[in-house]
């Protein structure tokens, strides 16, 4: 079931991002505007240094634009303070990174539950969603293991489960298969595709891999800080 509606899940308007390197100011994103509608699976591609990851992090609120705005559910997140932005990250969006970014001394279940715990929820009230998501990512039997006891693919699946536990509207993924072999990478892409189709979650993914991009419904190419 692909729940695609014409309503914008996220919208970026006139995004400009400058980086200061020593005395030199470099414009990485040059007035980018884009809209991703709810339920869409968008891949952002581009060469190294093109600005695709910077765009993803700005859209996801991990970085702020030098100028321009990002709207999630109609709210301009670029003007949010830390408290509001943190709440958006807990409730409305999920992130998957190339290097998993799991907390090494917490087990799988605890890592997955973190966004809910930070949101003040009680672990005992979310046993069912936890079980469901662990089954979706196929790690129910590994729930008590720590990240170091898992393979790269399994760790990435934990990261996906953590991103999904709060049932966010948008899932951001930064090269989710970049650190995996091709077989495991394909498994992860298939999982993301399934999530997008079955749960209707909007996914915005940065990738180098044309193979991975095939899983998405739209591909955006960034070149020299601009959309092609």
């Amino acid at each position: 079931m692909n729940i695609l509606t014409e309503e914008a899940a996220i919208e970026g308007k006139n995004i400009i991002k400058d980086f200061q390197l020593g005395d030199t100011k470099t414009r990485v994103l040059k007035n980018i505007s884009l809209k991703v509608i709810q339920g869409e699976f968008v891949s952002i591609m581009g060469q190294s240094g093109s600005g695709k990851s910077t765009l993803l992090y700005i859209l996801g609120g991990l970085d702020v634009p030098t100028s321009g705005s990002v709207f999630i559910n109609g709210m301009d997140i670029s003007k949010f303070n830390d408290e509001k932005m943190s709440r958006i990250r807990r409730q409305n969006i999920g992130f998957v990174f190339q290097f998993y970014n799991l907390i090494p001394n917490l087990n799988v279940a605890e890592n997955i539950m973190l966004p809910l715990l930070l949101d003040g929820k009680k672990m005992r009230d979310y046993k069912k969603p936890l079980k469901d998501i662990l089954e979706v990512v196929g790690l129910w039997d590994k729930r008590g293991h720590t990240p170091r006891e898992l393979s790269g693919g399994q760790q990435q699946r934990v990261a996906i489960a953590r991103a999904l536990i709060g049932n966010p509207e948008i899932l951001f993924a930064d090269e989710p298969t970049g650190n995996l072999d091709s077989h495991t990478g394909a498994e992860i892409m298939s999982l993301l595709q399934r999530i997008n189709k079955e749960r209707g979650q909007t996914i915005i993914m940065v990738t180098h891999s044309p193979e991975a991009a095939k899983s998405s419904s739209r591909v955006i190419t960034v070149s020299d800080g601009q959309l092609q």
């Binding site: 408290e83 943190s86 990250r89 409730q91």
Partner: peptide, 14 residues
């Protein structure tokens, strides 16, 4: 680790 926490919604207050 702090960055990981922040990426999933840990606020400065928390």
């Amino acid at each position: 680790t702090i960055a990981m926490y922040k990426s999933i919604g840990l606020s400065n207050r928390q």
